[in-house]
Amino acid sequence: MTNKTKILFVNDEMEMGGVARVLNTLMANLDTDKFDISCLVLHKTGMLLSEIPSHVNVIEGTPFFNTIDRPLIDILNRMDIKALFSKLRLLFYMKTGLIKKRILIERKKIINETYDVELAAKEGFCTVFTAYGDSKKKINWVLTDYKQNNYSKNHMSLVIEALQKIDMNIADSEDVLQSFKEVFGITRGITIHNLMDIEKVKQGIQIGYEDAIVQPGLNVIAVARFHPQKSLERLLYAYKNAVDKGIEHNLYLIGGGETEPLLRQIVKDNNLNRVFFLGYKQNPYAYIAKCDLFVLSSLYEGFATIINESLIAGTPVLTTRVGGVSDQIVEDYQGWIVENTLEALKAGYLTALSKPDKLNDMKQTLKSYEYPNDKILKQFEEVFK
């Protein structure tokens, strides 16, 4: 047998979120007869550490990176003096450009071999870390729309310089790729959609859910971090608008996060007594499958895997026009795409719920939905050769 290709994936943390999930799915699907896989987590923390596939060699970053994933404002609010010192030191190295030499020093402490391929799983610092390493092929994975939200805006010169050392940029949608090219002035890039954990979705549907929360009548669901990016308050206003126009239905919110107090206040102030907060669910798919419509109300995305997971679960989707969705949904067949405004979301929401027969027809059609995982996996393997 020929030697395996040695791959190193680099991520800053493994918290519950899109990047960690799609990274774990990719590592789980790569052929272990072809690839020897390692994953460096610069700050080894997060719920999804436990879901890293068992065949992956997990490497922990040095203490220098312990605040890489923590916003400065969060550290200040918590008055964490030790973390504040660590964060300010890290920012000093990045602002002065000394981080390039420091990365070489820290890499020697934790990496004792040369990799055939190194992939920065999250744009920004992971890009810089990968760029200044000695792996033979360096890849940057782009998973968000940088024209809508530039995570690297405070370190643009550093990232732009690092990108000159990157051999390939992979974006999860064509919209995301074009935005990244425009913001950073790069030309090297291709589009490969995210892999889906299809079996996990299907098994989740079979397992069911802990309690019979789904009520009779029309049921709508959203699964998201409660974060300003997801703009769930717009969904609540769309819900209220439909109820005010006589469409009684239930809305279920799965997730949690910083905007939850705001969302609960909107529900309370408007007497939205058929909105249910279900908290985090390890298995949201059974809930999605039992509902008539899934709604994504985000302000921006890269390639929202939850959309395709909903389609796999057999539930049509209403989404705002964010990066990737035009590649994911066949309109009027699998769901609806509306412009990214509150008024458009209200109108689209009303249209969808006014057509329960069409929703049911879509659910029937989605029973034969197939996501092209095999094709996507071959694309990744071609790049990793």
Score class of each variant (00 low, 15 high):
M1S: 15
I7Y: 07
M14C: 11
E15K: 14
G17W: 10
R21I: 11
L23F: 01
L23A: 11
L26T: 12
L40Y: 05
L40V: 06
G46K: 00
L49V: 09
E51W: 00
H55V: 02
N57M: 10
V58I: 15
I59F: 08
T62P: 05
F64G: 13
I68V: 14
L72C: 08
N77L: 04
R78K: 13
I81R: 04
K82W: 01
K82Q: 10
A83W: 01
A83I: 05
A83G: 02
F85P: 00
L88V: 06
F92N: 15
Y93H: 09
M94K: 14
T96K: 06
R102Q: 13
I103S: 02
L104S: 09
E106V: 00
R107F: 02
D116S: 12
L119W: 00
G124T: 01
F125M: 14
T127I: 04
V128T: 15
Y132C: 07
D134P: 00
D134T: 07
D134Q: 09
W141Y: 15
V142I: 15
T144W: 03
Q148R: 06
N150T: 03
K153W: 00
Q164T: 14
I170F: 00
A171D: 03
S173W: 05
V176M: 06
F184T: 08
I186Q: 13
R188D: 11
H193Y: 08
N194F: 02
E210L: 06
A212R: 01
P216D: 15
A222F: 01
P228C: 04
S231L: 01
L235I: 01
Y239P: 03
V243N: 00
G246S: 12
E248G: 02
E248M: 08
Y252I: 05
R264A: 13
Q265C: 01
V267D: 08
F277D: 02
L278D: 12
L278A: 14
K281C: 03
Q282P: 01
Q282F: 07
P284L: 06
A286H: 09
D292S: 02
V295H: 03
L296G: 09
S297I: 02
L299F: 03
Y300P: 07
I306K: 04
L311Y: 02
A313E: 13
A313L: 02
T319C: 07
V322Q: 11
S326H: 15
D327R: 02
D327I: 03
Q328A: 15
E331V: 04
W336L: 15
I337G: 09
V338R: 04
V338C: 05
L342E: 15
L345A: 11
L345V: 06
K346V: 13
A347L: 09
S354G: 12
K355P: 00
K358F: 01
K358D: 04
S368V: 08
P372Y: 08
N373R: 10
K375I: 12
K375N: 14
L377S: 08
K378Y: 01
Q379K: 06
V383R: 05
F384L: 15
